[in-house]
Write a protein that binds this DNA or RNA. Structure first.
Length: 899
RNA sequence: GGCCGGUUAACUCAGCGGCUAGAGUGCCUGUCUUACAAACAGGGGGUCGAAGGUUCGAGUCCUUCACCGGCCACCA
């Protein structure tokens, strides 16, 4: 059999994905067990404009591990892929292209033509991430791929809107909204980033009418004073008590405004008097409502001053207006002072333009109403279950407790058009279809609302809309609620909470059982990866350099932990892949006459020690891996398999079995030894498969004797593939603690001899003689039975075992005392430096002495002996006894060595 | 202002009440030993951010502090 010496990930990555796909392995229909349990995940739909970054790769790896694991466990498994239309991003992207290629704006070509272009753009450039997912090995069901603007999903959006409208939870009206002057659209609170900004606080004086008193107000936005309609003070503030109700003369403008008392005002801050601009500040808007103040709009949707700001200001940009206002106050002698001040400023989450709070007529959703059920569910049943629970359950709960109305409408073209029509009188008709609206309006002369819905409105429906809602489809009945949602923490409010709202409202059940929140991946200096900083690590490059499987192992290990990205981690797992490859190569090069599934016939008690041992280790690895995956502890799962494979299987089992496996002449014994190695390897490949799909499939298919026999019962009709093999179940009866401790003593012996060889500078090729004395019993038996293996692994010419002490060995020997009182003697005539050997033994003695001291102190403490569990005390006593014995033997050895 | 997370070996991270605190990488020494030099064998390296406390026993629980980071909030 031809097998290259080094693993080439690319070959395996190219070979298997399309075959899995064509054979339908990713679709739940592959499962023919009518009683199979169901496991389902919907992907967080990436933006059509997006391309793969490490965060995606991390989420996808977690989802794929879960999907593959459950599929192998016989679950009817669905992982549903799809994309989000990403309203603003996509529209901006296409507008940019339009400007670049044809020097046109969207208004030049009109709404209809523009939308055609967006669709064309989407067909051409969209879906990049989904294609990249094939590279990742993501086992998604392509036949159920969805897009948020699909007809079905759009119908769901209209249904959602209409039902909420009919319930009175969606309404249209004027309100204070976040306006992005650059994107020229309203935004929800969650699409706004608040950042700290170094700025100035301006103290402006407003004269009191018919008096020479002045009231000083502090503001970060002097230009808004042109729209002031009041000054507010705290009702408890005695400094201003006599001024409440007084009239002030608004400088520059000359308008007469009132002093009002309002609890909102904090007397401690600034001057205790606040200018009130109801048209341009959310708080002032509220105060305006309370005091019935006029709203004067002085800033328009371009962030320029309006005619109402006065002729000197009309048309000025808001920042130009600020300068001019300050200048005028200075000239008027009404600028008291300007101080440096750091405050938080709202910026558009998309383009970072400073948000302008404006009063505008928009559509809103009363989130507090829709959020009641999710809040109850998390409070009473702790559903969904967050992983990690802290801090996310609390964060989620707190958010649900303080819900505000959600600004739904966007002044964009790309997105779901609001299903509302107006007749000529301006009356609104909300309906599922235009025909419906006409019927109800009793006229054909209707105009549809020009706005579209927030992208997150359709995302909120994703788990149900992708499965067919509002129809009661089989998919919805089968796969809803979904099992787990895997996503990043920054969209818990934007998305996760809202899916729970719609799921509970429309499907009557939670959208998912669990929510897994991944960690964040930073660059090596701890900076967040971002395209603007250009410090992102491209997953595709990492795949190319180290292989997909190796990268997945790193990502799975990251799990929920914030991590600085480090290529060396990937490199070490690339090495692990190579290790797997070569272990398999060894088994395959020695596979003549052997088959997976054979070699472990008969009673375990009749098996060789190392065979009982590896089976025991395998069962523990299997058990621990399953437990870890089910607890979402992927790091532990990866560690478990890694160490089982490398340390137990490669370093010890293959070496201990090597002589039998590579025996020159064919024999039933050789066949059996080879089969055993293959069998363990095959089980290990199954354990690894959810994490490393490509290499495991590539090797598994080459193993002699694999076929439909290894497939899970639900997939017996399918073509052989490790992805449909049964995930191993631990067989507790094969766990053999005695074999494990016996191998441990063998390992100790071999390691100590190797240590002596290294310290004594014995050439690797040179043979030594070993004399091992035991006190009879188990160790004598183990060492005798394993003499050939000991000889092989220590390069010993002879291994002599004595079941009692007292044999005279050459004085020129290196010695080591083992646990349980065995001693190994390595005669080193001419090679040994007595002083050096004494020193080595003394160091050993010292080590033991320190440990003994600690233990004795503990045992001498009556509180410990009295209160600690009896087994802990007993354990310590035994260790103390062992140390005492070994110390004594070391002393004797030292005695013999000194003149 | 409120809430939360992190701080363990040179680096990236495990461990979260009880064996001599671990892994990978890096470092030192020696090896091409017929699966693998992307490997093998051996070795050095940590007062677990600081200070108190609880406990027979604390990286592991509690309190305070320091530094780093995050989230929420209507302080002009």
């Amino acid at each position: 059999m031809e097998i290259p010496k080094a693993y080439d990930p690319k070959l395996a990555e190219e070979r298997h994905y399309s075959r899995w796909e064509t054979q339908g392995c990713f679709a739940p229909e592959i499962n023919r067990d009518p009683a199979a349990p169901v496991y389902s995940i919907v992907i967080p739909p990436p933006n059509v404009t997006g391309s793969l970054h490490m965060g995606h790769a991390l989420q996808h790896t977690i989802m794929d591990v879960l999907a593959r694991y459950h599929r192998m466990r016989g679950y009817r498994t669905l992982w549903l892929p799809g994309e989000d239309h990403a309203g603003i991003s996509t529209q901006i992207q296409v507008e940019k292209q339009l400007r670049k290629e044809e020097k046109l704006t969207r208004h030049d070509i009109g709404r209809e033509k523009f939308l055609e272009r967006v669709w064309r753009w989407k067909e051409r450039y969209g879906g990049e991430i989904l294609n990249q997912m094939r590279r990742e090995g993501a086992s998604v069901d392509w036949s159920r791929r969805r897009f948020t603007m699909d007809e079905g999903l759009s119908r769901a959006v209209r249904e959602f809107f209409v039902r909420m409208y009919e319930k009175g939870w969606i309404y249209r009206g004027p309100g204070m909204i976040n306006w992005c002057p650059k994107d020229r659209t309203a935004l929800s609170d969650l699409e706004v980033d608040k950042t700290a900004q170094a700025g100035k606080l301006f103290y402006l004086q407003y004269p009191v009418k018919n008096s020479d008193r002045r009231v000083t107000v502090a503001t970060t936005r002097p230009e808004t004073m042109l729209g002031d309609t009041a000054v507010a003070v705290s009702p408890k503030d005695e400094r201003y008590a006599d001024l409440v109700g007084a009239t002030l003369l608004l400088p520059i403008v000359g308008r007469e405004i009132q002093v009002v008392a309002d609890d909102f005002v904090d007397p401690e801050f600034g001057t205790g008097a606040v200018k009130v601009t109801p048209a341009h500040d959310p708080n002032d808007y509220q105060m305006g409502l309370r005091h019935d103040l006029p709203r004067i709009v002085v800033i328009d949707s371009d962030a320029r001053m309006t005619v109402d700001a006065g002729t000197e200001f009309e048309g000025l940009d808001r920042y130009e207006a600020r300068e001019l206002v300050v200048k005028k106050f200075e000239e008027l002698g009404l600028l008291e002072k300007v101080v440096d001040y750091e405050f938080s400023i709202s910026k558009c989450g998309r383009c970072a333009t400073v948000i302008e709070p404006l009063i505008s007529t928009q559509w809103f959703l009363k989130q507090a109403a829709l959020g009641r059920k999710p809040l109850e569910l998390i409070r009473e049943k702790h559903q969904p279950r967050f992983v990690p629970e802290a801090p996310y359950e609390k964060v989620y709960t707190n958010w649900l407790e303080g819900l505000h109305d959600w600004t739904l409408s966007r002044q964009l073209w790309w997105g779901h058009r609001i299903p509302a029509w107006y007749n000529e009188a301006g009356n609104v008709f909300v309906a599922r279809t235009e025909e419906d609206a006409r019927r109800r309006a009793g006229t054909d002369k209707l105009t549809q609302d020009p706005d579209v819905l927030d992208t997150w409105f359709s995302s909120a429906l994703w788990p149900i809309s992708t499965l067919g809602w509002p129809d009661e489809t089989d998919d919805l009945k089968t796969f809803y609620p979904t099992s787990v949602l895997v996503t990043a923490r920054d969209i818990i409010f934007l998305w996760v909470a809202r899916m729970m709202m719609t799921g509970l409202e429309f499907a009557g059940e939670r959208a998912f059982d669990d929510v897994f929140i991944t960690g964040t991946i930073f660059d090596k200096t701890g900076q967040r990866m971002s395209k603007s900083k250009g410090n992102g690590v491209d997953p595709l490059e990492v795949f190319g350099k180290y292989g997909v499987d190796a990268t997945r192992l790193v990502l799975a290990s990251i799990g929920t932990t914030d991590t600085r990205w480090n290529d060396t981690q990937v490199e070490s797992y690339r090495n692990f892949a190579n290790k797997i490859w070569n272990a398999a190569r060894f088994c395959l090069l020695n596979s003549e006459g052997a088959q997976v599934g054979r070699g472990f016939e008969g009673e375990p008690s009749t098996w060789a020690l190392h065979d009982r041992w590896i089976m025991s280790r395998l069962q523990k690895a299997t058990r621990d891996t399953s437990l870890a995956i089910e607890a979402y502890d992927f790091h532990a799962a990866v560690q478990t398999i890694y160490h089982f494979f490398w340390d137990d299987f490669c370093d010890w089992y293959i070496e201990l079995a090597k002589a039998d496996v590579t025996a020159p002449d064919p024999s039933p014994a050789r066949d059996a030894a080879r089969s055993r190695a293959l069998t363990v390897l095959e089980q290990a490949l199954r354990l690894l498969h959810p994490f490393m799909p490509f290499i495991t499939e590539d090797l598994w298919l080459r193993l002699p004797g694999v076929g439909t026999g290894q497939l899970h019962a639900a997939y017996k009709h399918a073509e052989p593939t490790v992805m449909l093999a049964e995930f191993p179940q631990a067989r507790e009866e094969l766990i053999d603690e005695r074999a494990e401790s016996e191998i441990q003593s063998l390992v100790e012996l071999i390691s100590r001899v190797r240590n002596i060889r290294a310290e004594m500078n014995i050439k690797p090729g040179e043979e030594v003689q070993l004399h091992i004395t035991t006190e009879g019993g188990a160790r004598a038996r183990i060492f005798s039975e394993s003499a050939a293996q000991i000889a092989r692994l220590t390069r010993a010419g002879s291994v002599n075992i004595y079941d009692s002490k007292g044999t005279n060995f050459p004085r020129a020997s290196a010695r080591a005392v083992l646990a349980g009182g065995a001693e190994v003697v390595v005669p080193l005539e001419g090679l040994i430096d007595f002083a050096q050997e004494r020193e080595r033994l003394r160091r050993e003695q010292e080590k033991l002495g320190k440990e003994a001291e600690k233990i004795e102190a503990q045992l001498a403490n009556p509180n410990f002996v009295g209160r600690a569990p009896a087994e802990k005390v007993e354990e310590l006593r035994q260790r103390a006894a062992d140390i005492t014995q070994r110390t004594r033997m070391l002393a004797e050895t030292l005695e013999a060595l000194s003149e």
